[in-house]
């Protein structure tokens, strides 16, 4: 199978859907002739011009509200926030309007809008460009949240998102953008709400989010040599969240660790742990553990930044501890 980088695969998915659906347009800073800061739209401006690849003023609240109105009126906007951190200026529009208009209108108005941006602690991006924020959107009714980790899933999930009539957050970890991987030719759609078991194992289940999936797979390879068999699950979408796949795995392994570079309080791990306790309490042979990023604004300096995130070593240590319970 051919290989593409994560960002090229997502871009191919966007390009295919723009060719199929003339109501799709992209808005953001530098998404036009420049092709996006992260190359999310490279080459598309030449095909579709300024109205469908629209460079905006720096006014995230403004163009998010604008795109919400455009979605209400029959278009299918893609808001490209570049860094997802910038979306915070638009939270009022997103929470009050974008997520609620379908409900308030009794489903008579649809909200087909894609909200994309790069997440994650990577490359000394510092306190204002390293956020994740997905728990906020899991907490509010109305959103769907996709966090792909492979090029194939990036393409398949963005295509599904561009055919969905709900607001979808499509979050791309900066540390994954240039990762290469196989991407199927032709039509490739990945459904929401289906986790992927990316490594089979029998001793412990690890659910990892975004870049931590890659780190967890590396840790699992190392631990294999120590005789520990790790099953790794990538949820792929956090809303809807496929807890059935996680529960089935825990039924087999009896142990669960959730690895997430985002903050622990009220986070993805807290939610997964609670749901799994509800569903398969009797299958657990040990307490559910979480391994999260440090509860600090993300610092700039490389040694400080490295200390703020999980990673291969910390994940391996956490798995060893949990297996020893």
């Amino acid at each position: 199978m051919r290989e593409l980088t994560f960002v090229a695969a997502a871009r191919e998915g966007l390009a295919e859907e723009m060719a199929r659906d003339p109501s799709i347009f992209v808005m953001g800073e530098g998404v036009g002739a420049r092709g996006g800061n992260f190359n999310t739209t490279t080459g598309l401006y030449e095909l579709y011009g300024p109205q469908r690849l629209r460079d905006t003023p720096i006014c995230e609240r403004g163009f998010t509200g604008l795109c919400t109105g455009a979605a209400m009126a029959g278009a299918r906007p893609v808001v490209d926030f570049m860094f997802i951190d910038f979306e915070l200026d638009a939270l009022g529009e997103l929470f009050h309007q974008t997520s609620r208009i379908q409900y308030m209108s009794q489903g008579r108005i649809k909200m087909p809008i894609l909200l994309r941006g790069c997440i994650g602690i990577f490359g000394s991006a510092g306190p204002h460009h390293s956020g994740n924020y997905y728990p906020l959107f899991m907490h509010v009714p109305g959103f769907r949240v996709a966090v792909p980790t492979t090029p194939a899933d990036a393409k398949g999930l963005i295509k599904t998102a561009l055919r969905c009539n709900d607001p979808v957050l499509f979050l791309e970890h900066k540390g994954l953008l240039n990762v290469r991987g196989p991407v199927p030719d032709g039509e490739h759609l990945v459904p929401f709400g289906q986790a992927a078991v990316v490594r089979d194992g029998r001793d412990v289940t690890v659910v990892a989010i975004a870049l931590q999936v890659k780190h967890t797979l590396e840790a699992a390879t190392r631990l294999q040599q120590e005789g520990i068999s790790v099953e790794v699950i990538d949820p792929r979408t956090l809303a809807p969240l496929d807890t059935a796949t996680i529960a089935a795995s825990v039924h087999k392994t009896g142990r669960l660790l959730i690895v997430d570079e985002d903050f622990a309080p009220c986070g993805v791990g807290a939610e997964i742990a609670t749901q799994i306790v509800d569903q398969v309490f009797d299958d657990l042979d040990a307490p559910i553990r979480r391994l999260n990023g440090a509860f600090v604004p993300t610092p700039y300096s490389p040694p400080l930044e490295a200390a703020a995130v999980p990673g291969v070593e910390k994940i391996a240590a956490a798995i060893r501890d949990l297996v020893a319970e």
Partner: peptide, 20 residues
């Protein structure tokens, strides 16, 4: 219930009309 949202949404609807 939120002041000023109408300004942005009407602008967006107009964007859709123009695009379509």
């Amino acid at each position: 219930g939120i002041v000023a949202a109408s300004i942005l949404q009407a602008t967006g609807a107009a964007y859709a009309f123009s695009l379509l």
